[in-house]
């Protein structure tokens, strides 16, 4: 299997000038209910997000001379901050690469392929066993029907790769799907920390019995992971709205009015994703909503015994077990 590098290079050639990003300025004529100075944020569409992502990836490619998919992993790990990647790149490259799942952390178990290759591999033995389905493959079959992720040398049959990736995508993973292999780290067994790169996953999902639906989900999640991992960007909370807002450096989260308006005219508070609520603070609104609920005993209990999930803000109650969710 090979990855078409030309394709991925082409997408970086977009001229930045024709970027359709709409920067709001004070001169714009819109008069929505949002009172925040409009220089504080930028309205983004899904296409703009893809373009922003590509531009950042291109910057890292230019800095590190690494392929695009690797640059994506570095950025993903560093919360999509080019500055953070650059600092750690000059400071401690090995640490950066291990963190981003580009180099193996520990000792790979059952690694049979020659290291450093992605997709296709060279085999120096006659038969090879897929360590997932435990089927034996002759060398010839193996070179056609099996693959390895880059760097670690773990080889599995394509059918097992697809099932592994499909399970991970269904569980909500995309940007951090790791190799199906295992390693020894400090005497303990661990999954292999190598992160599967984008074109490896896409090529497997296109052939080898992968489904178009999973491929689509995977690609959508990659964009999501950019937004969710980036504290300055949030999706518009309106149902079925695919726009997003990026706040600029002049955004002050503690200012009087933090409401923003997306390209489709939805207005919401950037801090709490609720309706605009100035002059009340986000916390006041939340308490007010709890109070307003019919069953005040329930809301009292919620206040006393639950905490909000840091990601989705749903109230959760810990009733035992360890701290892992």
């Amino acid at each position: 299997m090979s990855c078409n590098v030309d394709d991925s290079d082409e997408i970086f050639d977009d001229d930045d000038d024709d970027c359709s990003m709409e920067v709001c300025t004070k001169d714009s004529h819109h008069s929505g209910p949002s009172n925040m100075p409009e220089s504080c944020y930028v309205k983004l569409t899904a296409d703009d997000i893809v373009k922003e992502q590509r531009k950042l990836i291109q910057n890292v490619v230019e800095l590190t001379k690494l392929p695009g998919h690797t640059a994506r992993q570095l950025l993903q790990e560093m919360k999509w901050s080019f500055e953070n990647v650059a600092v750690l790149y000059y400071d401690d490259q090995d640490k950066l690469f291990a963190k981003a799942g580009i180099s193996v952390n520990g000792e790979a178990i059952d690694a049979v392929a020659v290291r450093g290759s992605s997709g296709s591999f060279v085999l120096d033995q006659q038969t090879i066993t897929c360590q997932v389905c435990l089927e034996d493959f002759e060398r010839e079959e193996a070179e056609k029907g099996m693959s390895t992720a880059s760097g670690c040398g773990h080889v599995f049959c394509n059918a097992c790769w697809v099932r592994h990736i499909t399970t991970q995508v269904k569980e909500g993973q995309a940007a951090r799907i790791s190799c199906a292999g295992e390693t020894f780290v400090e005497g303990k067994r661990r999954r292999c920390n190598i992160i599967l790169d984008e074109c490896f996953v896409e090529e497997l999902l296109r052939g080898s019995g992968g489904s178009a639906e999973i491929l689509k989900k995977y690609q959508t999640r990659l964009i999501d992971s950019y937004v969710n991992n980036n504290p300055t960007i949030k999706w518009c909370p309106a149902t079925d709205c695919t726009n997003a807002i990026r706040v600029t450096d002049s955004f002050d989260p503690s200012s009087f009015d933090t409401s923003v308006e997306c390209s489709d005219g939805h207005v919401w508070c950037f801090n709490c994703l609720d309706e605009p609520h100035a002059p009340a603070e986000c916390s006041n609104v939340k308490e007010w909503r709890k109070k307003c609920q019919e069953d005040s005993a329930t809301s009292n209990w919620l206040v006393a015994y639950t905490k909000d999930c840091p990601n989705c803000k749903v109230a959760i109650n810990k009733d035992g077990g360890c701290n892992h969710m």
Partner: peptide, 24 residues
Amino acid sequence: SSQTGAICLDILKKEWSPALTIKT
């Protein structure tokens, strides 16, 4: 857990790899 027997071990959760087996 001394009550239920539930085990907190990373490879039975997020560190699981399909190359691991019941034995390992």
